[in-house]
Design a binder for these strands. Structure first.
Lengths: 117, 117
DNA sequence: AAATCATATCGTAATATTGCAATATAATAA
DNA sequence: TTATTATATTGCAATATTACGATATGATTT
């Protein structure tokens, strides 16, 4: 079978709205247990350095570093240089976006209590 | 380089809690613009069949079918047979789980207003 | 029964993600 | 200056995801 004119495996982001794509990026960043664990840890300790997370999680340092990068790119955490280490913490901006999406859904669902399937 | 004893590319779910894994599954299901679009459409029309979504989205029928399957597996939508078509709608159970996760985060963040980075 | 309609599944190609060893970088300490 | 410490980047292997044509399945209609 040939798919010469179709880029397989690539998400067709251009067909969706910016908001849909943004939400998907945020959700995708949350779509890994290690990243959920990192966020939960950050919520608990408020602030920490990468090394703390490496000792907390059963993953190698490069792997943790990569997950941190993805969370940062998605806008879910922030990092600032502090001496020779980097201080990470939750970025409230990203969470506000997701939260408002779920708020809308919840509002919608509460309005129509009509059972469907 | 050799990684004979390491399953590369595979998420190490066994090292995380059930709750962390469950949340990740839900978030991952939301991590694609097409699936966001499907959910938004379902919220708008309350109930619809697969064919409606195929005409709505710029994706082929098997692709939509696959996305619907993932949303269903994650517990975000429900489907019930209705004649020779299938009626899909939002599954509130899944959304409740995600919503409570974000509620917890929001509560946490509001308590400690200490600036970190 | 045969045709039609709606959806799912299979097979496959292409890209993305996950994970870690090795290495690079950059700041601090000796 | 030379360790040492902390994090990021590179490179690569393995698995996962995305997308769709072809086809199967299963109900409805003719």
């Amino acid at each position: 079978m040939q798919y010469n004119n179709i880029a397989m495996g690539i998400t067709k982001t251009e067909h969706f709205t910016d908001e849909q794509n943004q939400l998907a990026v945020l959700a995708k960043a949350l779509g890994h247990p290690a990243r959920i664990a990192i966020l939960e840890y950050l919520l608990k300790v408020n602030t920490c350095i990468c090394g703390d997370i490496v000792s907390e999680l059963p993953l190698a340092q490069p792997t943790v570093s990569q997950h941190l990068k993805e969370l940062k790119n998605a806008g879910l955490i922030k990092g600032s240089i502090e001496g020779n280490s980097i201080c990470y913490c939750i970025n409230e901006v990203g969470f506000e976006k997701i939260k408002s999406f779920f708020q809308e859904i919840t509002n919608h669902l509460e309005k129509k209590k009509t059972q469907c399937c």
